[in-house]
Design a binder for these strands. Structure first.
Length: 661
RNA sequence: GCCGACGUAGCUCAGUGGCAGAGCAGCUGAUUCGUAAUCAGCAGGUCCGGGGUUCAAGUCCCCGCGUCGGCUCCA
């Protein structure tokens, strides 16, 4: 480490000795920062005032709502987690503290305690936290030898902290102390607790103590989640956002919109699609099916069960047994398929394949069953029976890049159609220093990985390389979709496989007349229909675009004498290929509109005396409202146009009869 | 699988050991109405399932199932 370091601050260049505290530099050169900011950042690293400087760089102030809001918030939340631990220690005597880091939108702290915390406990703890915050406790950074820290925590009976200190490398450690509470922590922290304006404890949960430490008997911790913001308004916005997400919860909307249900009588993790959910799913399947047919895919169908032998060959029986449902048939063991690949392979290997007929692209909406742990099931997003839009491309090694490009193009087209305009792409690669973990040889991996990267590069796609994240059988590309609320969802996946072609000895005859190893690509665009539709429901908040809406138009007669006309209108809509209904109830128009709005139906066609006389309909759109009167032909022409285009926008019609923009 | 909470009408929920309830939805009738809730009546229950305590259990206890919040794992 150099004796002295160069620090830029406020345009000034300084030479200070390494280890100088941030506070000392600021006192001399920028005393107002000590008052107005909560810390500094140096080369994008947050530092608090008590930390030592060890690297060259420019210091910029860290302020609430400043130019690095997430860094400042993270600091605030980390300090709040210490306050949480302090409050818990004060209120409960039988508690050991664990760890308490900030998270993406808050923080948590884990406690070791016989009894879990109740909601009443949480209220009391939050009250105590507010009290502690108000006293403007200073957070004091202490640096000391490991042994000393161990002693401090041992004396307090904090065995878990002792364990953490002991496992930490180096000889010197840091702790932060506020009031009588001291925590083993690298920081950085706010100068004092008075800088925390808005807090909220959210919920409790259980968590394992250091599950990755290799300990088998890790104790169960009681975790408390909370969040903190620099203003009450920000906290309010955050809570509103949570409520909005709750309203979009696909499980809630699945019931409200009559899309699907899970039945206790039948078993957990198995979805029953109602007619309306089925309509949505059918549209989604048909869309991809058509796309695939036009892109040279073949359709195949494979059975749901197969003898154990097939799964032994594929390796699933050894590596995936825990997750497979098995059944006895004539004293033989059969397996309910957890994946579609072995079935597609049986079709491939049934004939002698020539290099001339490759690639072969086998696609299937294949329903698979996996015995997931009961605790992980979650609505449509995590189920035990689900249908994959699965395809396996069998090709020559020299065709890999083009086939991957084709799959990428399809994935991009599909995401765009559903209005997922933002996404993240991961390229998961193997780690050459960890060879034991992977099937196939280094040459294969090199070829395959560069094929994937080349395909991404040639399409100008931005992606992140994830080292050592490949599947054991090959590298892969994963899409993560960002939905309307900014949340990420698992999207398409494209995976190369070196393992199954070996296990099944898949070959093709080359132009040299010899047999060569076939390359195999797994790809799923939706992934699972269940998960994809679950995500779509939340993305659209239940308001499906016209082409997907289970009921596209509902005709609302104003009085009973208009029912006949309404039925004629509905019939015309159906003839044009729309899904139409008539509300024949005798209530007021307002009530019918309200019900249609609640069901999020895209179009209401209101018909009364005026409309009958002019042979028109009054069009109301669920978000735009009253669109005025049109002839049914004009309306249908525009609606059909939007349906065929699979438009996702919420503004499908213009009042002036012009074609949609 | 593990920790905790919860499970009452189709849905949302009240019911703190003593007659099983409300709102919405449904059905019937009245009303015939122009852009987010017309009125009245009726019907609707294995209080998740099983066992126990008690004169008496939706309520208390035990076991099981399911759901939810997490941990861990995954499409």
């Amino acid at each position: 480490m150099p004796e002295s370091i160069e620090i830029k601050i406020n345009g000034q260049e300084l030479l200070v000795s390494a280890g100088t505290r941030v506070r000392d530099v600021l006192e001399q050169h920028c005393p107002e920062w000590l008052k107005n900011s909560i810390g500094v950042s140096l080369n994008d690293e947050p530092l608090d005032f008590q930390m030592p400087l060890h690297a060259n760089g420019e210091l910029t102030p860290l302020e609430p709502g400043g130019n690095a809001p997430s860094m400042a918030l993270e600091m605030c939340r980390h300090t709040t987690s210490h306050v949480l631990a302090q409050a818990v220690k004060e209120l409960f005597s039988d508690v050991q503290v664990g760890i308490g880091p900030p998270t993406a939108d808050g923080f948590y702290y884990d406690f070791l305690r016989e009894d879990p915390f109740t909601p009443e406990d949480l209220q009391a703890i939050e009250k105590r936290m507010r009290k502690l915050i108000k006293t403007n406790q200073k957070l004091e950074r202490l640096e000391m030898p490991k042994e000393e820290a161990e002693m401090i925590f041992a004396e307090k009976g904090e065995d878990l902290k002792v364990e953490l200190v002991r496992d930490k490398g180096g000889g010197q450690v840091s702790c932060y102390k506020q009031g009588n509470f001291i925590d083993f922590c690298t920081g950085p922290h706010l100068p004092h607790t008075g800088k925390i304006p808005a807090i909220k404890l959210l919920h409790t949960a259980a968590a394992h103590w250091r599950p990755k430490s290799g300990r088998k008997d890790f104790p169960m911790m009681q975790r408390i989640y909370g969040t903190a913001f620099f203003s009450a308004e920000d906290l309010e916005t955050f809570l509103d956002h949570r409520d909005e997400a709750k309203k979009r919860d696909h499980r809630r909307l699945g019931i409200d919109l009559d899309l699907f249900h899970f039945d206790e009588k039948a078993g957990p993790g198995m979805a029953y699609w109602h007619p309306k959910g089925g309509t949505i799913r059918h549209q989604i399947e048909a869309f991809l099916c058509d796309e695939q047919l036009s892109r040279g895919y073949d359709v195949v169908y494979t059975p749901h069960i197969a003898r154990k032998h097939l799964w032994e060959t594929s390796g699933h029986y050894d590596y995936y047994k825990e997750n497979m449902f098995t059944l006895d048939v004539d004293e033989q063991e059969y397996v309910l398929k957890p994946m579609n690949c072995p079935g597609h392979i049986l079709i491939y290997e049934k004939g002698t394949r020539s290099y001339r007929e490759l690639p072969l692209r086998y696609s299937e909406f294949g329903t698979v069953y996996r015995n997931e742990l009961s605790g992980v099931l979650h609505g449509m997003l995590r189920v035990r029976g689900f249908t994959q839009d699965d395809a396996h491309i069998f090709c020559r090694p020299d065709q890999i890049q083009e086939e991957v490009s084709g799959a990428l193009d399809l994935a991009l087209h599909v995401m765009k159609t559903f209005g997922y305009d933002e996404y993240r792409i991961d390229l998961s690669l193997h780690d050459p220093s960890n060879r034991d973990k992977y099937a196939g040889d280094e040459d294969q991996w090199g070829l395959a990985e560069s094929a994937l990267a080349d395909a991404l590069d040639s399409m100008g796609l931005v992606y992140e390389r994830q080292l050592n994240e490949a599947a054991f059988y090959g590298p892969k590309i994963d899409f993560h979709l960002i939905d309307a609320l900014g949340r990420a969802w698992q999207g398409s996946t494209i995976q190369l496989d070196f393992n199954l072609p070996e296990r099944f000895n898949l070959t093709y005859v080359g132009d040299d007349g010899y047999q060569h190893r076939t390359a195999m690509i797994h790809r799923a665009i939706y992934g699972s229909l269940e998960r994809f539709v679950g995500g779509l429901i939340e993305h659209y908040g239940g308001a499906f675009p016209l082409w997907l809406a289970p009921v596209q138009v509902i005709v609302l007669p104003i009085a009973d004498r208009h029912i006949k006309y309404a039925e004629a209108i509905a019939e015309a809509a159906e003839k044009a290929g729309l899904r139409a209904e008539v509300d024949r109830r005798s209530g007021k128009l307002g009530a019918k509109i309200r019900d249609a709005q609640t069901q999020k139906l895209p179009f209401m066609l209101i018909v009364g005396d005026r409309d009958m006389e002019n042979q028109e309909v009054s069009v109301r759109h669920r978000t735009v409202g009253d669109l005025g009167s049109l002839t049914i032909e004009t309306f249908l022409a525009q609606a059909v146009q939007d349906i065929e285009a699979r438009a996702v926008r919420e503004w499908p019609l213009r009042k002036d009869d012009a074609a949609p923009a």
